[in-house]
Design a binder for these strands. Structure first.
Length: 680
DNA sequence: ACCCCAGGCGTGTAGTGAGA
DNA sequence: TCTCACTACACGCCTGGGGT
């Protein structure tokens, strides 16, 4: 056993337990070692037993002891103290969720007492210092707030502490598991079993709550939140489908434009890896990596982001634009690596990008063995191969709700360029990956250079009547909206097309202010959040075109009704089609036919064409100054950002121009008939 | 077909410092 | 003074967590 000569935080137990013991010295030391061993085994998470055994064997061989039991036990006590010193965080933080909640309560009330229980009122600065000091001593990240008052309010809130401590516990314990070498492919890989279990518990808590909470909409229909969540992108199946649609759309766009695709695999330097796989088979023996410097997967992810930021900046300087997707995945020991599917305009640009990325990725420890071969890998994509290639990574990381592995029979991990079969035991591969991503706060999927997916989602909720009206206006913003609407809705056998949507938005790799459509945001000014801060509450209510027209998406006003039972389908249908939130509260539809008459606009000639849109010059901020209009919606007083051009004040036609008016009316008769027939 | 908050990260912009 | 390479920061989009 390695004897560690170190100063420890706690005093020597052999010394301070002496006072209460009359045993001879060697027996006393043996007892201290025994008690300490039992205590630590009791405190440590059970799955760490094997790792602890390798450091502190329960039944040593006679040869190892060499007959000198006193020295053996002294060394054992010292090693355990060293372990306790090194991993004191684990022993303090390896607690269950009920204890985390109890601690959160204690932290919040302790800080409340410190800040507000003082007989003399404290200054704001003193309060801030107290909070920051408390967080630092506990090793918890300080509350993130723009104002000192908000920071203090968070620090005395139990919910904030619960979130912060859950994160802290999960990361501390998982990091310790990685440092002890518990996380490797023989144990399931990616994350420790405890992290998976914690994640499963969390999901269960969440699901229970969602099933319990009932909401009632304007039509009186009652749903549980679980039913609603199943219909939104929080449902894994929907998220996976949407992601695949986007990838396919990217590929179609690239193929149509003859862009050059690259598939990248980017990994971290060896010092971020705690455990080496030890071989290529399922039975390979993992071994500790002596280059490991104790960094967490989060540190590794930040390293990757830093390198990527540099590469991105350099590519921008050289005028190289890329679009596509990036996927973050764990190696078997929890260290992340990236796969990216990027398209470039020309093969030359792709080659330059390749050189830039390689340069940065090898700029740190680029001379270590294998760096040149494994650090980054580039494969040119052939036409039509991308979606299939990436499907594997998508289903590997976003599994199906029914517990299946979404067509991926065995979970594999690419290590040193070789597919390695993972033994995923009681948790599915995607569940382990999910636990890994949530523990370390790593975003798994990242779109690069593509227009907003929120606009796409909102557009899918815009009603057709608004598009029919947009077709009758002759400005480019509306043309883009019409094209986007037709692209993102399924038309019979024709699937929704991300490619068509991207074209409508003006193509890939545009600057943010250059997209043809953006989200329409309802701003409610001067509201108060749960921490007492005054904020402007923003809510996405639809899509806004370049000229400021709003297409409002279908939304309901929901109200909580906890006590009621959920209705079945028949009961809901009996209540009829719900009213939408906006159709009745503006004069938009009523004024539209009138405006058509007065302005003499012609209908948009073609509903859906595939030409690129020539974008108008960017709006100047001064001219786009919104007019504030106060509306009452569901009893809530809100201020809309309503651009001026929506509010149409029809000018009375000059009296001597009556003939011209009649001609126009005749010309528009068919349109009017259509509108009337549609019940408007 | 929820809503709010927190946090991660892409993006744009301003700033900095070295070197030509 | 300009360019380059990088960094810091603000902002906004997006995702995930959690609540009733």
């Amino acid at each position: 056993m390695r004897i560690v000569a170190k100063r420890h935080a706690k005093p020597d137990p052999v010394f301070w337990m002496r006072r209460r013991s009359n045993l001879p010295h060697d027996q006393h030391v043996a007892r201290v070692a025994r008690e300490m061993d039992a205590r630590m085994r009791g405190e440590l998470p059970p799955q760490w037993g094997p790792a602890f055994d390798t450091i502190m064997p329960l039944k040593p061989t006679v040869r190892a002891v060499g007959g000198d039991w006193l020295s053996w036990n002294l060394a054992r006590v010292d090693a355990m103290r060293a372990f306790e010193h090194e991993h004191k965080d684990i022993l303090h933080w390896a607690v269950g969720d009920s204890e985390v909640c109890a601690r959160a309560r204690r932290c919040a009330s302790a800080l409340d007492d410190m800040l507000n229980g003082h007989p003399l009122p404290m200054s704001l600065q003193d309060k801030l210092d107290t909070v920051l000091d408390y967080c630092e001593r506990l090793g918890v990240e300080k509350p993130n707030s723009k104002t000192p008052d908000g920071l203090i309010a968070r620090a005395i809130t139990e919910q904030w502490w619960r979130r912060a401590l859950r994160r802290k516990v999960a990361r501390t314990v998982e990091h310790a598991a990685i440092k002890l070498g518990v996380v490797h492919h023989r144990n399931g890989g990616y994350a420790s079993d405890e992290a998976c279990r914690r994640r499963a518990d969390q999901n269960k808590r969440n699901a229970d709550l969602l099933a319990r909470v009932k909401m009632r909409n304007e039509a009186g229909q009652v749903y549980s939140l679980a039913e609603l969540a199943a219909l939104s992108p929080s449902n894994r199946d929907i998220r996976r489908g949407e992601l695949m649609t986007r990838i396919r759309g990217c590929e179609e766009f690239a193929d149509a434009n003859g862009h050059h695709g690259l598939f990248l695999t980017l990994t971290c330097p060896s010092r971020f890896h705690a455990v080496l796989s030890g071989g290529k088979s399922r039975w390979a023996k993992p071994s500790r990596n002596n280059k490991y410097e104790g960094d967490s997967p989060r540190d590794a992810q930040q390293w990757l982001c830093r390198m990527w930021a540099k590469a991105r900046a350099k590519m921008a300087r050289k005028g190289i634009a890329a679009y596509g997707f990036r996927v973050a995945e764990p190696h078997h020991d929890g260290c992340p690596h990236w796969h990216a599917l990027l398209w470039f305009r020309t093969p030359e640009q792709a080659q330059t990008a390749r050189e830039i990325i390689t340069g940065y990725w090898l700029s740190d420890a680029g001379d270590e063995p294998g760096a040149l071969r494994n650090r980054c890998d580039f494969k040119p994509m052939e036409r039509g191969g991308a979606a299939g290639y990436v499907a594997k990574y998508v289903s590997k990381n976003i599994g199906a709700e029914d517990g299946g592995d979404a067509g991926v029979g065995e979970h594999t991990d690419t290590l040193d360029g070789v597919e390695q079969i993972m033994d995923t035991r009681e948790f599915k591969g995607w569940q382990r990956v999910d636990a890994w991503a949530s523990t370390w706060g790593i975003r798994q999927f990242q779109a690069i250079g593509q227009p907003s997916v929120t606009v796409w989602r909102e557009m899918r909720r815009v009603t057709k009547d608004q598009i029919d009206h947009a077709q009758m206006r002759l400005d480019l913003g509306d043309a883009a909206a019409v094209k986007a609407w037709w692209a993102c809705h399924k038309q019979g056998a024709i699937q929704a097309s991300w490619e068509g949507y991207v074209r409508a938005q003006g193509g890939m790799c545009r600057k943010r202010r250059e997209w043809a459509l953006r989200t329409a945001v309802r701003v409610t000014k001067d509201t108060t959040n749960c921490y007492g801060e005054t904020i402007d509450r923003k809510a996405v209510v639809g899509v806004e075109t370049r000229v400021g027209h709003w297409l409002v998406s279908r939304r309901q006003a929901w109200r909580s009704c906890a006590s009621e039972a959920a209705q079945d389908k028949g009961q809901r249908e009996a209540l009829g089609r719900p009213w939408t939130r906006f159709n009745n509260c503006t004069a938009r539809l009523n004024e539209e036919p009138q405006r058509l008459l007065m302005r003499g606009d012609l209908p948009w000639p073609k509903a859906h064409d595939t030409d690129e849109i020539e974008l108008p010059a960017p709006r100047t901020p001064a001219s786009a100054a919104p007019i504030e209009q106060v509306n009452h919606i569901a009893g809530e007083r809100t201020t809309f950002r309503m651009p001026q051009c929506v509010q149409i004040a029809p000018a009375a036609p000059p009296a001597n121009d009556l003939d011209a008016l009649l001609v126009r009316m005749k010309a528009f008769a068919p349109v009017m008939r259509e509108l009337v027939a549609a019940g408007r």
